[in-house]
Amino acid sequence: MSESPRPIVVSVPTDELAADIGAVPEGVDLVVWDLRSPAPRDAFDMVVPPYMSGKRLLSALENISVGMLQSQSIGYEGMGRYLPEGTKLANASSVHETATAEIAVGLAIAAQRDLADYVRNQESARWAPQFSRSVADRTVLVLGYGGVGKAVASRLLPFETTIVPVASRARDEDGVHVHGIDELDELLPRTDILMITLPGGETTKGLIGARELALLPDGALVVNVGRGTVLDTDALVSELQSERLRAALDVVDPEPLPEDHPLWGAPGALVVPHVGGAADAMRPRIAKLVRTQIERLAAGEEPLNIVEP
């Protein structure tokens, strides 16, 4: 009599995510494991770590067989060295683009229309109207034209902006001309809002430094919803303290930003604590992605979103 096949074993970090995934195909064993407690199995076909855990918890995978790690984040830079040998990595493309685009547009509007000033005035019951910049009629350079960059661009177009997409290489895509990164020196002086949506990693680290910031015109706004390491923090602080540029940042370097860091109090700086994807749109979307991955594993199909860390 032949033995029944081994079940496909998938772990998710919370009971909530397990409940959201719902019923799984026959032959799939769905368990809850937060990577902080002892592993409930010695082998997994897929492990979903906690959201925003980064690389901190991946040591829990040591001496455990893991077929695939399904991250809950889009970014995956530097994770390769922490994965068990032979483990595939999938990112959460399709989960966070919409929410990150919302925070990007929100930051741009808040900075242009001086909303932070009005919040401070409200705390002291001070009625103080002021004339501010618009988002309309601005040239927005979207640096990084992947999923997040395209989502941001599509939402900014109805604000009657001019979108200038920039990627690693020039190309025409879906009727849009995408500029190459080698054109930055020519494009930055004509940019009103620099929207950074690039991932982290060695290839993008410090890409926007003192020289690039100096090319921006006076009064330009720098928005970063990609990774903090793309932007030279010291160079940005220097520009802010001179009150030549302004910034609205969802990501910074370092994170978390130390209490005594000069960026907190720099003129024209609006800082939020890396919350681009932290919206309730994430919950059904991550459940849908993980459920799809489970179904593909059960059907013997290649998982989605496999990346090279």
Rank of each mutant, 00 (worst) to 15 (best):
R113C: 08
V95G: 04
S73H: 06
A99D: 15
R120P: 09
E77G: 12
P84A: 06
S71V: 01
Y82D: 12
P84R: 02
I74P: 05
A92G: 06
L61P: 10
I109D: 02
Q112H: 04
S94V: 10
A92N: 08
L69I: 11
L89D: 06
A111G: 09
Q72P: 02
S93Y: 13
K88A: 15
G86V: 04
S59R: 15
P49G: 07
N121Y: 13
N63G: 15
V105W: 01
P84C: 04
Y51P: 00
K88T: 07
P50F: 07
G86C: 10
L89G: 07
Q122Y: 04
A99T: 14
Q70E: 03
A125M: 12
R120V: 01
W127Q: 07
S124Q: 15
N121G: 06
P84I: 07
A116P: 13
L83I: 03
S124F: 11
E102C: 04
G86T: 07
G67V: 01
A110S: 12
R126L: 12
Y51F: 13
A101L: 07
Q112I: 01
L107Q: 02
A104S: 14
A111D: 05
Y118W: 13
S124E: 13
V66L: 03
R56E: 12
G54T: 00
V95A: 04
S73W: 11
P49C: 05
A108D: 02
A92W: 08
Y118K: 03
Q70N: 09
V95D: 09
I103H: 05
K88R: 15
K55W: 03
S94W: 11
S59C: 04
E77H: 14
M79Y: 15
L61H: 08
A104E: 01
Y118C: 04
S53V: 00
A110R: 05
L61I: 00
Y76V: 12
T98K: 11
P49S: 00
A108W: 02
P49K: 09
A99R: 06
D117R: 15
A128E: 13
S93L: 12
E62L: 08
V48I: 06
Q112C: 15
N121K: 05
G86E: 09
R120H: 14
N121Q: 14
M79K: 01
V47W: 03
A104Y: 01
P49T: 09
A92L: 03
G67F: 06
L107R: 02
L115M: 14
T87C: 15
I103S: 04
P50H: 00
S71W: 05
Q122G: 14
Y118D: 08
V105I: 11
K55F: 02
L83K: 10
D114I: 02
E97L: 05
L61M: 09
A90V: 06
M68V: 07
A111E: 00
A92V: 03
H96R: 04
I74D: 07
L58C: 03
L69T: 11
A125T: 10
L61N: 10
L58V: 01
A90Y: 03
G75Q: 00
S73N: 14
V48D: 10
A125V: 14
E77D: 13
M68F: 03
Q70S: 09
A104C: 10
D114N: 13
V48N: 08
S71T: 12
Q70P: 09
E77K: 06
A125F: 15
D114F: 01
V66M: 06
R56K: 14
W127R: 10
I64H: 11
E85P: 12
T98Y: 15
S53G: 13
R81L: 09
V47R: 05
